[in-house]
Amino acid sequence: MSSAEPNSAAAPRPASAAPLPSTAGIADPGALGLAGFATTTFILSTFNTGLLGDSLETVVLPFALFFGGTAQLLAGMWEFRRANTFAATAFSAYGAFWLGFAYYISQVVPKLPPAHAYQATGLFLLAWAVFTTYMIIPAMRTNGAVLGVIVVLAVTFILLTIGAFAQSTGIDKVGGWAGYVTAALAWYASCATAANGTWKKTVLPVWPLD
């Protein structure tokens, strides 16, 4: 979810402040963050679509803890270092989402009243649907690849939220397929970020929007 954020967007600094260290030698963490997000989303979507049974769903937990969660959170911290507000917010937030998801599934769900657990899950998903929907606005200043990820992710969260509250496996499956599209777009954006940064030229287009 990396973007070339203009320096004018940074907070003003006192004239007497020492210049900030250059970030020119810091690699773009966007490829890592997008890869962690895409891979974990793909794994979870496999169960949301019903392609694999729920009895195997715990396989998503190590991905959520270490790749989608920890690695993505670290990518977000490095984006703060690069003064990229959108990517820092997105990677850090979705890293926290996956860590929270792992904790929710393993520690919270087993303790919820079975008759009302779906409401808790719906509320959990609704909060992320709201966050992702308003992140579309800053994503419009990044590039087409990242904007596509955020838009389809918002649709995914909305569908899964509706499916949870309505207790509809049909809507859940549609949300799972939307998750597959999200994962594919994020994988493409990750590959483009890594390839373009390594080759020092446009190998895969990301369609800048600014």
Score class of each variant (00 low, 15 high):
Met1Phe: 12
Ser2Glu: 09
Ser3Pro: 00
Ala4Arg: 11
Glu5Met: 10
Asn7Tyr: 02
Ser8Phe: 13
Ser8Gly: 01
Ala9Gln: 13
Ala10Asp: 14
Pro12Phe: 06
Ala15Ser: 14
Ser16Leu: 11
Ala18Tyr: 02
Ala18Lys: 15
Leu20Cys: 00
Leu20Val: 02
Leu20Tyr: 00
Leu20Gly: 00
Ser22Cys: 06
Thr23Lys: 03
Ala24Asp: 15
Gly25Ile: 00
Gly25Lys: 06
Ala27Leu: 13
Asp28His: 11
Gly30Val: 10
Leu32Tyr: 08
Gly36Phe: 02
Phe37Gly: 01
Ile43Thr: 09
Gly50Trp: 04
Leu52Ile: 04
Leu61Thr: 14
Phe63Gly: 01
Phe63Gln: 00
Ala64Cys: 14
Ala64Asp: 11
Ala71Gln: 10
Gln72Arg: 05
Leu74Trp: 08
Leu74Thr: 11
Ala75Cys: 10
Met77Val: 15
Glu79Phe: 02
Arg81His: 08
Arg82Ser: 02
Ala87Gly: 15
Thr89Trp: 04
Ala90Asp: 06
Phe97Met: 03
Ala102Gly: 14
Val109Met: 11
Lys111Met: 11
Pro114Met: 08
Ala115His: 09
His116Phe: 05
Gly122Glu: 09
Gly122Lys: 03
Phe124Asn: 14
Leu125Trp: 12
Leu126Met: 12
Trp128Ser: 04
Tyr134Phe: 15
Ile137Trp: 14
Ala139Arg: 05
Met140Cys: 15
Arg141Gly: 02
Thr142Tyr: 00
Asn143Gln: 06
Ile150Tyr: 08
Ile150Leu: 07
Val151Glu: 05
Val151Pro: 07
Ala154Arg: 04
Phe157His: 13
Leu159Gln: 04
Leu159Pro: 07
Ala166Thr: 10
Gln167Ala: 13
Ser168Met: 03
Ile171Thr: 10
Asp172Trp: 04
Lys173Ile: 00
Gly175Ala: 05
Ala178Phe: 11
Gly179Leu: 07
Ala184Lys: 01
Trp187Tyr: 15
Ala189Asn: 13
Cys191Phe: 15
Ala192Gln: 08
Ala192Gly: 11
Ala195Ile: 12
Ala195Cys: 14
Gly197Leu: 10
Trp199Ala: 15
Lys200Glu: 15
Pro208Asn: 06
